[in-house]
């Protein structure tokens, strides 16, 4: 899932300040799962912004709506009938959602209400962890299913740096050393010697070799 967190309210208020008719647009997918931009959060943000406007005595129309997905055009076109009522969109989608909606309505400024964070998992209620870089060349098989690129602070592919102590990362004792996790996991599965070879440099061309990536699947096309 793509995770996100709401931007500071002051930053949002500054960005929406020039506009008088604002649609606060939630997204029911990833950002709803991480409690940043779903229907509830969208309702709260819209309510807070309306209250702030009232306190300042400003006449601003602030409505809310939550789409199932902002990053899929089929859902975004559901706004076709109401979009003309607004002079700005405040999106609680991830960066992809913000851009997809913006592309559908290029005449209307779109403002991001969230900071998109990472590809991650919901580890526990209220805890989300980054564990994938989307590198386009998955090597999880070699590392016991734990990604050293995403989860080691130095992206080390050949074992822990000298700062791994007691299973913790030197740069943040709150986070586990990815290499300790990898070694423990691979040992448990009986393949320690697999980690003894030198893992070659990462092929980053799969991520950024030809500019922004796209996936084309003819069998999926109209």
């Amino acid at each position: 899932m793509i995770t996100a967190e709401q931007k500071p309210l002051d930053e949002i208020r500054e960005m929406i300040a020039p506009y008088k008719r604002i649609l606060v647009l939630g997204c029911g997918s990833c950002v709803a799962e991480c409690a940043a931009g779903g229907e509830k959060e969208t309702g709260m943000l819209a309510s807070i912004l309306r209250m702030a406007a009232k306190m300042e005595g400003r006449e601003v129309l602030i409505n809310e709506k939550t789409l199932e997905r902002q990053c899929v055009k089929d859902f975004v076109i559901l706004l076709d009938d109401i979009i003309q009522d607004y002079d700005a969109l405040l999106s609680l989608g991830c960066g992809a959602g913000v851009q997809a909606v913006g592309d559908c309505f290029p005449e209307i400024p779109i403002i991001p209400a969230l900071n998109t964070e990472f590809l991650g998992e919901t580890k526990d209620q209220g805890l989300w962890l980054e564990n994938c870089l989307g590198c386009g060349d998955c090597k999880l098989y070699h590392f016991g299913g734990i990604c050293p690129l995403a989860r080691c602070s130095k992206h080390l592919l050949n074992g822990p740096c000298g700062g791994s102590v007691g299973g913790k990362c030197e740069i943040n004792p709150e986070i586990p050393c990815a290499w300790q996790l990898i070694i423990d996991r691979v040992e448990q599965q009986g393949g320690f010697e697999r980690l003894e070879g030198i893992f070659p440099p990462k092929d980053w061309s799969k991520k950024q070799g030809l500019g922004p990536r796209r996936i084309i699947r003819e069998d999926q096309q109209r």
């Binding site: 509830k40 309702g43 709260m44 309510s47 807070i48 309306r50 209250m51 009232k54």
Partner: peptide, 11 residues
């Protein structure tokens, strides 16, 4: 209780 209800009441 969804916090949005508290905000709605205040609003």
């Amino acid at each position: 209780l969804d916090p949005v209800h508290l905000l709605s009441a205040l609003e």
